[in-house]
């Protein structure tokens, strides 16, 4: 059975003082959180004491301001960042969509890019071959599939990326922000496929600044602030709260 369980997960990493001839640069990249000092060393606490459980069929929306830890949490779940405290227990195959263009070659055709993205995802050649026509059909790219990727609009790129990422029915799908890319018809289609995935006992976690989008797609909302969990509520109760407050 697919599940995710986080117990008191924290992510603290040392700000490496790079050897450089230029003036010290204490900017941090990628993650938010709080900066702590210990002697001359600096640490970033990007996630602090995060706990939650998800089971089959759950669709969790991550909300919070920039630097709240949404992307960092997704990357911990995907295994890019190793948590420095707590435990992450995941049952199920995890797939992620963090960057629409990741692994796509501007000069290669859509068809070739499906092969490349499939290889990066760890698919066998037989799996790529088997799914190729389904992916092309779902993306609705038609004859564009044999044109270079650089000829695609942002929406077409999003369609192709989403089609590839969901082609092998990932048990757990992590997505960051970009779901708002594509046009309305694509979003409707994407929502339908996510419904199907969730019905197949999958878990979907989305990070976005658009609460309306998350309310539409998710069953639970996790609000993060400064790397800490502020609230975790079912979407329905959240709506009810909003209605009663009016």
């Amino acid at each position: 059975m697919v599940s995710i369980k986080l117990d008191n997960v924290s992510l603290v990493y040392k700000l490496h003082e790079k050897l450089t001839l230029s003036a010290p640069d204490r900017r941090i990249n990628g993650t938010g959180g709080t900066i702590q000092e210990s002697g001359r060393k600096q640490f970033v606490r990007a996630l602090d004491d995060i706990s939650f459980e998800l089971s089959a069929g759950d669709r969790l929306g991550l909300v919070g301001p920039n630097g709240a830890g949404k992307t960092t949490l997704l990357k911990v779940l995907y295994g890019i960042y190793e948590p420095s405290g707590g435990t992450v227990a995941i049952k199920g195959k995890v797939d992620a969509l963090f960057n629409i263009n990741l692994g796509f070659r501007a000069e290669a055709t859509g068809r070739r890019n499906i092969v490349l993205r499939g290889l990066i995802n760890g698919w066998s050649e037989a799996e790529i071959e088997e799914k190729m026509e389904d992916i092309i059909a779902f993306s609705e790219l038609g004859d564009f599939i044999d044109l270079p990727f650089k000829a695609y609009s942002q929406g077409m790129a999003a369609r192709l990326a989403f089609s590839v990422a969901t082609a092998l029915d990932p048990e757990i799908l992590l997505m960051d922000e970009w779901i708002g890319a594509g046009d309305a018809s694509f979003q409707t289609k994407a929502k339908r496929r996510m419904d199907e995935l969730a019905e197949k006992a999958g878990i979907i976690i989305l990070a976005s600044h658009s609460e309306s989008l998350l309310n539409n797609l998710c069953t639970k909302l996790l609000t993060l602030r400064n790397g800490r969990k502020e609230s975790l509520v079912p979407v329905l109760s959240k709506l009810n709260l909003a209605i009663t407050s009016k």
């Binding site: 990628g30 990357k75 995907y78 295994g79 890019i80 992620a96 963090f98 960057n99 990741l102 692994g103 990066i120």
Partner: peptide, 9 residues
């Protein structure tokens, strides 16, 4: 960088 920050390769 984009691969390192976006995949588990």
């Amino acid at each position: 960088r984009s691969f390192i920050e976006g995949t588990t390769l």
